[in-house]
Amino acid sequence: MVRLEYIKKEYEKTRQMPGKWYLTSCRYKFNITRFQPFLSALKEKRLIGLKCRSCNTVSFPPKLVCGKCLTRPDQWVSLRETGIVATFTANYMKDETTGEANAFPVIAVRQDGADTTYLTQLNPKVKFEDVYVGMPVKIKWKDNTEGNLNDIDYYDCIDDPTQKMDSLTK
């Protein structure tokens, strides 16, 4: 670790008291019945989003409220299995055996046909260096779907038609 020097001043110490924010005692309520069609679709390996009738914004995963119109969207629309990487970052995880910190890409996917992003994980075999904004990805389902978000195993890269075009022009 590189140490950075800066002008420091030492202060004397005062008494310290223990204190805690008991976050674990908080519960969060969420009415899942509204999302039931979405979850049932996942079980059938289908993707659906919620469309706001007044501004045509499609949200995936479905959103309870359309902020633009302050209405409750209620129209389910089908989405394709492909999407693009809207943005991404890395998650550094320590390898248990070697103790090395490895970068795992975490991506925000915009599903084709939807207008919002979903934070999810990329195929762990894809190297972080190879990810870029605008990269096309495709959903990889779990073999046994149960009707929840966990049915999406990860997103996998697919061939990028724009890159193919770039190579042709070269």
């Binding site: 969420f30 999302f35 914004t57 949200s59 995963p61 479905p62 959103k63 309870l64 409220v65 902020g67 809207a86 943005t87 925000a108 915009r110 207008d115 919002t116 992003t117 979903y118 934070l119």
Partner: peptide
């Protein structure tokens, strides 16, 4: 504005480019 990246269910994540 609506939240970027983290919104699920209730709100947000409509900022495609943060």
């Amino acid at each position: 504005h609506e939240t970027a990246i983290l919104g699920v269910g209730g709100a947000g994540a409509g900022q495609l480019d943060p």
